[in-house]
Design a protein around this nucleic acid. Structure first.
Lengths: 215, 215
DNA sequence: GATCCCATCTTTCCGTTGTAAAGATGGGCC
DNA sequence: GGCCCATCTTTACAACGGAAAGATGGGATC
């Protein structure tokens, strides 16, 4: 009776019933991601995600024991996609210098484009990610891209010496700080208001680069 | 019957009844601030704040029509206190250079000390602050401190030319980014783990300064 | 000094949420 | 062909944010 036909996105199943369709977990993360991007993670509810997926909310509860676990899964995928996006952007690089520039631009651009998803990825709730190892892995992997690019810059005499993580921390702080401020609508200030995000981002990234570059 | 005696913090009232004690609004913000610092704003509830204040939750609802309005009031006070804290720190300055340094240090130190309150102040929910003018005023006033210090730096030939807001944006992004990353527990990374926050903050602030300083 | 008004607080109520527990279902393995 | 267990549903509960209406009493008015 309850078996509602469901669009069986990824084929491979004979039946088209809601039961055991095997992709519910993925479907929930899909819909959850959409919802986060639409409304922001603080206001999304497990029940609404389940509703849009066409199942009861307790079906979601079966796959994710808590709301936080669902959010963690969404954030994890967000990190994976962002990492892929950054890697893709850097493939156009011709050297260490352009690699750093491309990485910085891509970071901010992706963060702003995925707005609310980026906010979830860096939200404090997700900070309980010690309980979600895969989230930590995905997040660490992204930071590793940064450190690698910095190391490259050091080896070609572009970036100052010292531990690469130190310079990476400076650049990351600036990029993340700018993205956060922009997403939190904190740039509606006299002197900043009305200016293009790209222009402001370029200013911050240039400042960050000169802060870690060889004088 | 219901009139519970209440500790009448700020004197000036004859009666000690819960009714009309005239400080409920302030008391709610007080308790709310405490709660935010203890648990973080995502998990605080209007009802718990009211409970700790010794009134029903609808009494809180009378003073703050929505939960968001209560959070906005808490954030507003947070900005005011932070502004005062920064001003106080800068009073020890001997020149434009030390003023900038003191401001940067004080900013990060205060942000980390007030942790969860700082997160509320910069949360996206609070970004509906167009609906809360006093919050916007308090937040803008704090940013003005930054711009002023930068302008001073420019006039004494310490900071590069151009619009002061541009350099302020670079510094702010770095400081806010570092504080956010630290508070979101994002610095638990190989190469950063175990190092003192003060040390890392100094690295970021130095980088930000050299990114806007005269070459 | 009695009376009335209205800001303030309480009582009651509603729909929604997250989570738990127990029951139904049916695909895949023996 | 029949059983088992992963998967989904039904049912239930306490807590939440918010609305509406009722109670209370301090201060203004006379």
């Amino acid at each position: 009776m309850p078996r509602k036909p469901i669009k069986n996105s990824k084929g491979g199943r004979k039946t088209v019933h809601a039961y055991h369709h095997g992709d519910l977990r993925r479907a929930l993360v899909d819909q959850g991601t959409k919802l986060v991007q639409e409304q922001g993670h603080p206001s999304i509810t497990v029940r609404e995600v389940a509703r849009r997926t066409g199942v009861t909310h307790t079906a979601a509860h079966y796959h994710f024991r808590t709301r936080e676990a669902l959010l963690a899964a969404i954030a994890t995928r967000g990190f994976e996609e962002m990492t892929a996006s950054l890697e893709s952007a850097m493939r156009a690089a011709t050297g260490a210098r352009s690699r750093l520039a491309l990485l910085g631009e891509a970071y901010v651009r992706h963060a702003l484009r995925r707005g609310r998803l980026y906010q979830l990825m860096f939200s404090a709730e997700t900070a309980t990610r010690d309980a979600h190892p895969e989230l930590r892995v995905a997040s660490d992997r992204m930071f590793a891209l940064l450190v690698d690019a910095i190391r490259d810059g050091q080896e070609t005499g572009l970036v100052r010496g010292g531990p690469p993580v130190d310079a990476a921390l400076v650049a990351w702080s600036a990029a993340h700080g700018f993205a956060s401020l922009s997403l939190e609508r904190r740039l509606m200030l006299p002197g900043l208001q009305g200016r293009e995000n790209d222009e402001l981002a370029a200013i911050v990234l240039r400042g960050a680069f000169e802060g870690i570059a060889i004088a």
